[in-house]
Amino acid sequence: MSQWVIKGLRTGIKSTRYPRTIETAPGMSPGLPVATRMSPDMAQMMVTRCPTSALEPAQAGVDVNLRRCIHCFRCARGTDSPMEWERERDFECAGVTPNSNDHDRRFGPAFSRSIHILVVDAGDCGACLNEVKQLNNPYYNMHRLGFFLTPTPRHADLLLVVGALTEHMRLPLRKAYDAMPTPKRVVAVGACALSGGIFGRSFMCAGGVGDFLPVDVEVPGNPPPPLAILHGLLVAAGRKPPALLYRRAEDSTEAPG
């Protein structure tokens, strides 16, 4: 069995140094559309290309609601004047909801380096879940930051939910949440958990978990790459500042194009 020990040592350290330094390896993240100033006609054309209404027309141009973006790239491809996409530090995009200000939902200092997470898949396509799984691979290794998956809600501080919330998962999700001791927080991961994504609202899907559970932190993406989820966890732990999920064209520094 010594071959495994040697193999492990030879492989060396693969883990990213994030959050100490920013990760820049290629292929890390699909990027995000950038709210841009543009003429009303152009803005209207962009908005009609978006299948999930993530792009919204505004006075100054196109606003972007990251909760809805599913990375279909329709605003970036097959058009002469594509939307700009953010590629650097783009994964630091998790935002907070008003719930997270509640006093009894805040983690005290004892939690800062030890947060136990219960993962519940409330009906996604498997991509978000797979990205959550990657958090334990050597590249991301969330243990080094004090995040641990726990098998039982009784030991969980944080509920990580992926998926659009199907009718069938309502009861299991409710039971899991209720069984968690306080203080507890909820991190919703992926466009489906935030807004329903492409599944939307239907006879089976609730269009996200926000109406069903008090969500504290929202991680946009379809799926969000592992670093984005990690950023979301750090935001929940109070170790990283949150980002804005709704981005306005009028705040954009770009000149109208």
């Binding site: 219960l118 993962v119 519940v120 898949d121 409330a122 009906g123 498997g126 879940l129 959550v132 799984k133 998956l149 726990t150 098998p151 039982t152 809600p153 069938h168 998962m169 299991p172 999700l173 039971k175 899991a176």
Partner: peptide
């Protein structure tokens, strides 16, 4: 259907 790790329901 809620599992001990990141496992589908």
């Amino acid at each position: 259907p809620v599992h001990s790790a990141a496992i589908a329901p």
